[in-house]
């Protein structure tokens, strides 16, 4: 008979997360002939990402989607996915995420470093860009700006290297802090920027594409170890489908979101001179991957080598 499982994620349905969850649910239903059904819990109903990850580890929630940056709260080496300019462009991003070797390396890393949860596959919300009340057209423009970054060692290294001052705060405080000038800028994907209305307080987004918003599909070990070999095959195949189809759709969604924002009067700077940023970031790429650990180093090499 049919069994219901929960998938939790902390963005609304109409985002890349919703796309991924729907692909996964549809494919799993199809492969299992309606015996494995996924119930979606969007919009952080069951908690913020680091909190939900804890609950997945404990087996209270069966599936979840999380940013690789939040996965680093469980396994610091996951920070490799946040390295700046690791993904060269949209095409490279799509290929790297669909690469079986990359996916396998990542799964191995999680299996060897995290207890209680297992990664099924990779997905993305596209690239992260800088948004503020002013344009960031080149490296010189970011000098001295107070930028809200995710609290990870990668961001703590890279943004000061660009000459910016970093500020840590939870995602929920970004809006107010941009409004009050506690920070001058923040960085995220176009759709996240749109859906969370951050354009209201920082109406200019500069497409710096400094890092990808990569994400993971998790399953609790409690469920994974209880599945039959056949069921595991279905679940993995449904996850592979996500890694194959979702990045293209998510990137389309980013383009649509940018068009919608432009229509509303928000300014999108598309011709950013990225060369200055890339030049600063290049020497850090390998060094930081090696500092994170052997798994991170391997993943970085595999991604960089993907053509």
């Amino acid at each position: 008979q049919a069994k219901h499982y929960k998938i939790a994620y902390d963005q609304p349905v109409g985002t890349g997360y919703g796309i991924a969850a729907t692909i996964f649910a549809d494919k799993l239903k199809e492969l299992s002939k309606g015996t494995m059904l996924i119930d979606q819990y969007p919009g952080a109903q069951l908690g913020q990402e680091p909190q939900v990850l804890q609950l997945v580890k404990a087996g209270d929630i069966e599936f979840c989607l999380s940013a690789s940056a939040n996965a680093a709260t469980l396994t610091p080496q996951a920070g490799v996915m946040s390295l700046h300019f690791l993904m060269r462009d949209e095409n490279h991003l799509k290929k790297a995420l669909a690469s079986p070797e990359v996916s396998q390396a990542f799964r191995t890393m999680v299996d060897e470093t995290v207890q209680g949860a297992h990664v099924l596959g990779l997905l993305t919300l596209g690239f992260r860009n800088i948004y503020a009340k002013k344009e960031v057209r080149n490296l010189a423009d970011i000098k001295g700006m107070k930028v809200r970054v995710q609290a990870t060692p990668t961001e703590d290294t890279m943004f000061p290297a660009y000459g910016a001052q970093i500020v840590h705060m939870p995602f929920g405080s970004v809006y107010t802090s941009l409004q009050t000038g506690v920070v001058d800028a923040a960085e995220n994907g176009v759709n996240v920027y749109l859906v969370n209305k951050h354009y209201e307080v920082a109406p200019i987004m500069s497409m710096t594409q400094h890092e990808a918003n990569n994400n993971l599909l998790w399953i609790s070990d409690k469920l994974w170890s209880s599945l039959t070999a056949e069921q595991k095959g279905w679940v993995q195949a449904a996850a592979d489908e996500v890694s194959k189809v979702e990045p293209g759709k998510a990137l389309d969604l980013e383009t649509q979101s940018a068009a919608k924002l432009k229509g509303m009067g928000v300014k999108i700077v598309t011709d950013v001179d990225k060369s200055g940023f890339q030049k600063v970031a290049q020497p850090y790429l390998e060094k930081m991957a090696n500092d994170l650990g052997p798994h991170a180093a391997k993943i970085q090499q595999l991604i960089s080598a993907t053509q």
Binding site: Q51, L55, A58, M169, G172
Partner: peptide, 20 residues
């Protein structure tokens, strides 16, 4: 339900672990 008791304790913690 299937919810573990430790998860309830974690949610109590999460409730006050908020910047605002």
């Amino acid at each position: 339900t299937d919810v573990t008791f430790a998860a309830i304790v974690q949610k109590m913690f999460d409730g006050v672990d908020s910047e605002a």
